[in-house]
């Protein structure tokens, strides 16, 4: 063991259980790959998504993780929604987890150390967001998912309201960021 390594080991702060920073990138890869395997059929988009997973893991500063989320979400268009299909619940939880991991991987260098207790607050917030979202998803899927032989529900007024809500949401979400950057 060289002198520098000895000094590093002996001088490391005692912060309890910790993992190397590259574990965050590894988790991005694991979660991304698992979602790809679960959501995408073998084919061009599957391999393209895996490339995005690799880019998001190796170069976390790039927006590859969020492009991957778009690709994964788009996979829902290829199948009929069902309240009894567990994959959509996994996708909701997985995309949220992928967002958190990718956000942390952007700011934590791979060669640094991460105290496990540092993730207590993000984990608590993850659960606080996921519990109501999963409940809403289950209720909505039971209420609106098309059943076999039934006519699709057409709600033109709600569609117009939703479009207006989308515009308002876009303004609420995006405008503050541009204002802050300006």
């Amino acid at each position: 063991m060289s002198g520098t390594v000895r000094v590093r080991v002996r001088s490391a702060p005692r912060v309890g259980a910790r993992v190397p920073g590259w574990m965050l990138r590894a988790f991005v890869a694991v979660v991304g790959t698992a979602l790809c395997v679960g959501e995408l059929a073998q084919g061009f988009w599957f391999w393209a998504a895996l490339v995005l997973v690799a880019i998001a893991s190796v170069f976390p500063a790039t927006p590859a993780a969020w492009v991957l989320m778009v690709a994964l979400g788009s996979s829902l268009l290829t199948r009929t929604p069902s309240a009894l299909d567990g994959r959509i619940y996994a996708l909701i939880a997985g995309i949220h987890l992928l967002h958190l991991l990718a956000a942390y991987a952007r700011v934590v260098p791979g060669e640094s150390w991460v105290q496990l207790r540092a993730f207590a607050a993000p984990l608590r917030r993850y659960v606080l967001v996921q519990v109501p979202v999963q409940l809403i998803a289950a209720l909505a899927l039971f209420a609106f998912a098309p059943r076999s032989g039934a006519q699709p529900v057409v709600l033109p007024i709600i569609g117009v309201v939703a479009a207006l809500a989308l515009v308002v949401l876009a303004i609420v979400l995006v405008v503050p960021f541009f204002r802050q950057k300006g």
Binding site: M69, V70, G73, L76, I88, I95, A140, L141
Partner: peptide, 22 residues
């Protein structure tokens, strides 16, 4: 926003559900 827009355009509320945690 992309998920919400896709849900509106394709009349797929399940895509909007994926956008909720974000």
């Amino acid at each position: 926003l992309l998920f919400c827009a896709a849900g509106l355009v394709f009349s797929r509320f399940d895509i909007v559900l994926v956008a909720l945690p974000l």
